[in-house]
Design a protein around this nucleic acid. Structure first.
Length: 306
DNA sequence: TCTAACACAGTGGTCGTTGT
DNA sequence: ACAACGACCACTGTGTTAGA
């Protein structure tokens, strides 16, 4: 894991990265809990197969805004290079923010995968690396260490390059899971899908009804017994308010005050009926959309009817 | 510490289906 | 014709999560 500290070497590797198709990137930030966080390291991996760390370059950019600006200009805004991060929005804040293009976020991919395909307690990179890629003994202690100090400790360096490797591996596994979980509808086997559905439907009903029932009972019991917290649940009450006004009064106010206050409201079927013929005097906008409904058929009663 | 993005619960409403 | 039902949606407000 080459650790680059000089401007010339960093600019040189950045120039090489402009030819890359995909880069796996992570950053470390100093003073993250202050008003002025400083970018400390940019770690870049250009070969996802590399597990040795030889292809992870650590760019030391602490208090080097010119180097960061160059990285943003050459890499981040370039739409032809895919940049992969975990929780991209955090890192991208420091790397060009809204100007950044072609960003992939492994956190977002992971969260979109249905729970039963990826049953994890949380979506931290460490957890995903452990569950998906069988990495063990991941030490996250360095994460909150002082990234503003120089020289960095050996642990910090190890942590920094390992994170990139986890990232690329997690990304690879996520893409595989994603393609499994998202088959082309044209190619789906409807018989198999229906079979699987009927297989688990009964268990689902049993479990679902019991979970809901338990929630209700726990809620009522905690209220009745004045318990706001157990080791499993927290019960909180909150006030909801809805502010309402009479339509006529509002209309008059807007008119008399000459307020710039206009928007469309949905004319429900009831309102349309109440308006009757007067409706024709309004220039209504009509939105049409199609939606599809899946209705399970009751197999037993069907056969009875026949 | 920051912070956007989510997830969730609860309320109230629409609208089509179903049974009488 | 009408009520009951459920699927679905919009909206308010709370709380959690992930990164260093």
């Amino acid at each position: 894991m080459p650790y680059l500290t000089t401007a010339s070497k960093i600019d040189q590797i950045v120039a090489e990265y402009t030819k890359a198709k995909t880069l796996w990137i992570d950053t470390e930030v100093a003073d993250y809990n202050s008003r002025n966080p400083r970018l400390s390291l940019i770690q870049v991996l250009d070969d996802p197969e590399d597990m040795s760390g030889d292809r992870v370059f650590l760019l030391d950019v602490l208090d080097q805004p010119d180097l960061v600006a160059n990285f943003i200009q050459q890499i981040m805004v370039n739409p032809d290079i895919e940049k992969v991060f975990h929780h991209a929005s955090y890192d991208v804040k420091f790397l060009g923010d809204k100007k950044a293009r072609n960003i992939t976020c492994t956190l977002e991919i992971a969260k979109k995968i249905p729970y039963y395909l990826l049953p994890v307690p949380n979506y931290q990179l460490k957890t995903l690396a452990t569950v998906l890629c069988n990495f063990h003994y991941i030490d996250k202690q360095a994460q909150t260490s002082d990234w503003g100090q120089r020289p960095l400790t050996e642990e910090q360096i190890d942590y920094a390059y390992l994170d990139c490797i986890y990232l690329a591996q997690v990304h690879k596994c996520l893409l595989e899971l994603q393609s499994e979980g998202d088959p082309a509808p044209e190619a789906e086997d409807l018989i198999a899908l229906n079979l699987r559905y009927t297989q688990i439907e009964e268990q689902w009903k049993l479990l679902n009804s019991e979970v809901e029932h338990l929630q209700e009972r726990i809620k009522k019991a905690m209220q009745a017994q004045n318990v706001s917290e157990t080791s499993f649940f927290k019960l909180t009450a909150y006030e909801r308010k809805t502010v309402k006004a009479q339509f006529l009064e509002l209309a008059r106010l807007v008119q008399s005050q000459g307020l710039n206050f206009d928007f469309s409201i949905t004319l429900t079927q009831k309102l349309q009926k109440d308006l009757g013929g007067n409706l024709e005097q309004l220039s209504v906008e009509i939105d049409t959309s199609n939606s599809w409904r899946l209705t399970p058929k009751n197999q037993e009663s069907n056969s009875e009817n026949e």
